[in-house]
Amino acid sequence: MSEIDMAVIKPEMMKPYIWLETSDGSIQQVEQEIAMYCPLICQEIIQKGMGSSKSCAICLPQRVSPVTLSLILDYCRFHQVPGRSNKERKSYDEKFIRMDTKRLCELTSAADSLQLKPLVDLTSRALARIIEGKSPEEIREIFHLPDDLTEEEKLEPLKNTTDDPRIRLLNRLYAKKRKELRERERLKNVEVEEEHVDERSVDDLLSFINGNDGDPKEVKTSKNKKKNRRKKEQQQKNSSLKEASEVNKVEVNGQSIRHQSAEADRIAETSNSHTEDVFAHREFDDGDIDDGIDPALKEKIDREVEDFARRLNSDWPERMQELLSSGQERKMMLFTPNGNSFLRRNA
């Protein structure tokens, strides 16, 4: 009995050990033949002579945590034993990769940093099986990834592989909308300037009212000239505003009549105040015109975009099915069983 115990203990004591330090600073002892299964650790031992004592332990990469290292050593402990059949190894591998996706990811990263290719291949195939056949939204949810792509970036890949005209039209609409948004931002800046000017014009108006009796006539004259300029600007800008122009024409005619009757009583004008009034009103009118146009265009574009998005979404299941069927036969196998179960449930 005692002899048997000694025999068992003796080889174990003689077996060489090495020291490994993980990123959190903890150091542990590992059988050398098992650790040597990792190419990185093997290099450290052979080329640099590290790991022979606690004071010169091998520092493992940042991505290798103690828990992950334990898993990796279990894997190495099984596979470095000679004489196991391929069937046994495959069976062990299948059990080994049954873990949650987070741990599987950590394991892939750690195995990759240790250059342990068989384990990287095993875990990456398992992760690929998780990803396969899922939509980007599903993948994002499973792997807790951020939704940090713009709409344009999400549609970019489809441009490479599909000639669907709806995709192209949707891209065009998005570009148009983006352009409109940029222009509206510019207009906001202009409006800020207008408000600033308006304040001064109010002060000037008050001074006119309090100052002279002849101001009303002078104001009328200024209005007349401003409307004339407005008419010209409208003609230059856009011919689609005919109705507005007609209304302005009527007003202009009325003003010209008053102007003629008041001509005998006109008074000299102050050039500075006149210039300021003209500028203020002009800007105000411009603001009105722009505000009138943008909502209509914006509403139209939004309606078109929503319409196409709806149509695209309604066709999406068919398109996804088409994509899947055009993929590998393997995917067809994956898709059909679900269909079967769905139909069975209905029946």
């Binding site: 690929a128 990803i131 396969e132 980007p136 990834l145 970036e153 970019e156 592989t161 993929g327 590998q328």
Partner: peptide
């Protein structure tokens, strides 16, 4: 990981995740 996926998924699905 991505090399284990089909061409279709690498070209049309993965680029739209993040």
């Amino acid at each position: 990981i991505f090399t284990n996926l089909s061409l279709q998924e690498r070209v049309t699905v993965i680029p739209r995740v993040c």
